[in-house]
Design a protein around this nucleic acid. Structure first.
Lengths: 212, 212
DNA sequence: AATTCCATCTATTGAGCTATAGAAAAATAC
DNA sequence: GTATTTTTCTATAGCTCAATAGATGGAATT
């Protein structure tokens, strides 16, 4: 009978260290050239290994894309749900949502970018699964906005769907310019929040600030 | 000596009718699958002709992409410049800019989408040329916002660069959802404008509306 | 009717890419 | 230090795709 050798701690650790490097390289290359524009050779070049060696870590290019996309959304949804269900005014929670939506750019920009732009090229199965999360996140924003309207914090004549799409579009776009602009995420989030809540307009003189 | 026969009106007209169809098919396919994900066979299928026949109309797939991208920006910049230089308050002009930026979605959505997402795959030469237009458009928005601040219409504590990127991101994102949402462009533009100028916040009771 | 020109077709080349098979080397265990 | 397991390598099969060359049929021209 075959003795199934338990993976030794050290071996498992090695692999656990290597696999993420492979996926990070894939994320970088996919982010730069797009899924179909990138070759597995490009990924191997980043790592300094042979193209075929990659297939020890994933069994197809599409699987690599799926792993990258998963890392691009994971956390997003849970964090959002917690914020939406948490305490505070709709304003407060919307502000936190914007922050939470932007902060993965700090350390996972390539993953987020790939998730945003390349998930359409996933095989139907995983695309649907990931699409569900995405729509879930939309709803979280939309519900907070609706609540804000219902509670009289936000304008009643607002189209909450449009507002949601506007805010998400604004945040998502940041993934494509935030490197070039080198503004800290905290600043971007603060400006976005203020813009969304108060607008560009200057309050007329002699009035007290509405909040804060 | 060779007699160069002038293109007959009818023939020229035929070609003038056909070439745009070819490019429209390319736009559709590029928009759907991305430049590298799309094959020339896909384009030919839309038109019901053979793959090789396309090369009568363009000399490479990249050239087709360039033509599509050009149709995706043409007009944008001129229209924006005219609005920015025109009459009205900064508020008014910003509103017009948002409108003008969204309206090509009505009849050129695929072209706009391809311009936004696939222009990175153009050869260096044309990518730079098109990038220049794009940055020009950013400046138009940014200048109007700066003017609004200078004239006291907009908040003085605003970061005009962030505001510009926020507004453009918001508008550009519309190309990826406006078909599904079936809201008329005029409504989207109106909601976006209001959001950007006034924000989500409900003015405190007892105050007069700030404008309009 | 003969000729010229246009649009599309058939056929094919050649390059580039993913993925597999099996060998080699490196790391780890006994 | 020998055996085992993990990781990477070489080699290549098999496919897809962009692009070229030259033929064909029909419309327009003379």
């Amino acid at each position: 009978m075959t003795v199934v050798s338990l993976a030794s701690p050290r071996r498992a650790a090695n692999r656990r260290r290597r696999a993420p490097q492979i996926i990070e390289a894939a994320a970088r290359v996919f982010a730069e050239r797009g899924f179909h524009g990138a070759t597995t050779q490009d990924i191997a070049d980043v790592l300094g290994i042979r193209q075929a060696s990659l297939y020890y870590y994933f069994s197809s290019k599409e699987e690599a894309l799926e792993i990258v996309c998963l890392k691009g959304v994971e956390g997003f949804f849970e964090a959002g749900k917690a914020i939406a269900a948490g305490p505070g005014t709709a304003r407060d929670r919307l502000s936190l949502l914007i922050n939470s939506h932007l902060s993965p750019l700090i350390d996972r920009a390539d993953f987020v970018r790939v998730f945003q732009r390349e998930r359409q090229h996933l095989p139907a199965e995983s695309r649907k699964r990931i699409g569900r999360w995405s729509r879930g996140l939309e709803r979280i924003f939309e519900d907070v906005i609706k609540e804000g309207i219902a509670k009289g914090e936000f304008r009643a004549d607002l189209d909450p769907r449009m507002a949601t799409l506007a805010i998400l579009g604004m945040c998502n776009a940041a993934s494509s310019w935030y490197r070039k602009e080198n503004a800290p995420i905290s600043h971007i989030a603060a400006e976005f929040t203020r813009l969304v809540i108060d607008g560009l307009d200057k309050p007329a003189a002699g009035r007290s600030p509405r909040h804060r």
